[in-house]
């Protein structure tokens, strides 16, 4: 474990806590894409299949459980909770995310480290995570203005993978046999997707203005 990875995991956890705060404090999920949340639940369920088979560390197992439970809880809340469900931007959140799931699964069948059930699902979860934010970014573009908590949520979510890239660079130079190409390249694509959001987020922060994304 290195500082970049720990910072990345904590940033990831913060993004989830910010989202939970927004939903529970405001009893609203306006501006949040249910499709992105569903994709994240699939990402964690597909990636942590080894939760019961490979024990890495208490930290690793606890964080896996937290990520799985929180992502499922957010989806459940946005689908079932009466008050929250009413505020869901159903007509704006129309990205066909099933195509993303299908494309990533096919790609994982083609490109993986080893052709085993667990490895294919791991690669699938890595590819899916890279594109999971797309429905959310599309929703933000359509709704134009971004409320603070949603903006912070997307910012931390993007920042965590950028920290992971630093972690991979660090591990590449410090560990003899470290090669995590699938995660590295996918992580670069993932962070690049946030690039324009980061740009407008920084501008709004610098000008102390409200975050408005160009339609």
């Amino acid at each position: 474990m290195n500082a970049f990875r720990l910072a990345g995991d904590i940033t990831h956890l913060i993004s989830i806590l910010v989202l939970l705060l927004k939903i529970y404090a405001t009893k609203s999920c306006s501006g949040i894409s249910l499709k992105t949340q569903e994709l994240y639940a699939v990402v964690f369920l597909a990636r942590y299949l080894d939760l019961f088979t490979d024990f890495i560390s208490v930290y690793n197992s606890v964080m896996k459980v937290v990520f799985i439970l929180s992502s499922v809880a957010i989806v459940w809340c946005m689908r079932r909770h009466r008050a929250v469900k009413r505020s869901y931007d159903k007509e704006l959140d129309t990205f066909r995310h099933y195509y993303l799931v299908g494309a990533c699964f096919v790609f994982a069948l083609l490109v993986h480290e080893k052709f085993t059930f667990q490895e294919v699902f791991w690669a699938f979860s890595i590819y899916l995570e890279a594109v999971a934010i797309i429905p959310q970014l599309v929703l933000l573009q359509r709704s134009g203005n971004v409320d603070n908590l949603t903006g912070q949520y997307v910012f931390f979510l993007g920042a965590y993978r950028a920290l992971y890239i630093l972690n991979w660079i660090y591990r590449y130079f410090t560990e003899a046999k470290f090669s995590r190409w699938i995660a590295c390249i996918s992580g670069l694509v993932q962070t690049a997707l946030y690039a324009d959001f980061f740009y407008y987020y920084f501008l709004s922060w610098k000008n102390n203005a409200k975050l408005n994304l160009p339609a």
Binding site: R5, I56, S57, N60, F67, W122
Partner: peptide, 10 residues
């Protein structure tokens, strides 16, 4: 086979 680098990352 290359000994499996355990998926120690989240």
């Amino acid at each position: 086979a290359k000994d499996e680098v355990a998926k120690d990352e989240l």
